Amino acid sequence: MAGHSKWKNIQRRKNAQDAKRGKIFMKLAKDIYVAAKQGGGDQEMNPALRTAVDKAKANNMPNENIDRAIKKATGDLDGANYEELTYEGYGPGGIAVMVEVLTDNKNRTASELRHAFSKNGGNLGENGCVAFMFDRKGYIAIDQNQTDADEDDMMLEAIEAGAEEMETTDGAYEIYTDPDQFTDVRSNLEESGFILDTAEVTMMPQTFSSIEDQDKSKMIKLVNMIEDMEDVQEVYHNLDADEETMAQL
């Protein structure tokens, strides 16, 4: 994954989030809702909920919003019933795209996604059409400015914490884990005093694909259109893009 720093892409996305904060809070609330619905409202007993809450707090989501989402899931408040789904398809130039959604109306969501794909030179596919091109991984990034550890020390710390792999990129140590071990690795690093800039379970492409410039423009529009949808939580793709293109995604 060298040359495809997820940390850099996350930083760019964070810089553009203020204009979309309302939508971001809605997506985070849905994520908390599903985690609490599936595993209960106790963060100590529900690692998925703790991860969702940590992500919400990192985005400055108010505590009352977090509590409301948990209470809706546990039945203490009335609310919509959300379903967690993954859609797959191909973007312009055959780029593999996976979209994770939380929706209370999957017919509406499928229709909106189908429109976005067709409008931007892609097509929504069947389940499984591109999933084999991605691996689910735990991902942790530590800003090098937030630690005194050099690369060798950080590598040892990551291994001792239970990580599978670590890469040093421009500005960050990027650590990858088995998704089942993610919570333990994160806790071990936090207990060792490290400040985690990013910590999440995500989908990593096994390989990256290049496309023509005209298709890159369509791909940018497709990803941005999908991310603006209220039901969409995450968008993953395997586009091999330069710095300028990634800054627009």
Rank of each mutant, 00 (worst) to 15 (best):
M1S: 13
A2I: 13
H4W: 15
H4P: 00
W7H: 12
Q11H: 02
R13N: 06
M26Y: 10
K27V: 06
A29K: 09
A36C: 00
G39C: 08
P47R: 11
A48S: 11
A48Y: 15
L49H: 12
L49I: 05
R50M: 14
R50A: 13
A56T: 02
A58D: 14
P62W: 00
E64P: 00
E64S: 13
N65L: 10
D67T: 12
K71N: 09
A73P: 14
E83R: 07
E84S: 11
G89P: 05
P92C: 11
G93D: 02
I95Q: 03
M98E: 13
V99Y: 04
V99H: 07
T103F: 09
T103S: 15
K106S: 12
R108M: 10
H115Q: 12
A116Y: 05
G122E: 03
N123S: 10
L124C: 03
V130R: 00
F132K: 04
M133G: 10
D135A: 10
A141V: 02
A141E: 04
I142A: 10
D148A: 14
D148L: 08
E151F: 14
D153M: 09
L156I: 12
A158D: 04
A163N: 05
M166N: 00
E167S: 07
T169R: 08
G171P: 01
A172P: 03
P179C: 12
D180F: 14
V185I: 08
R186H: 08
S187A: 15
S187R: 13
I195C: 00
T198L: 09
A199G: 10
E200F: 09
V201K: 10
P205T: 10
T207F: 14
T207S: 14
F208D: 00
E212V: 12
D213L: 01
Q214P: 01
K216A: 11
I220E: 01
I220L: 03
M225K: 14
M225Y: 06
I226R: 08
D228F: 07
D228R: 08
E230A: 12
D231G: 05
E234W: 05
H237A: 04
L239F: 09
A241G: 12
T245N: 02
M246S: 10
A247V: 00
L249A: 04
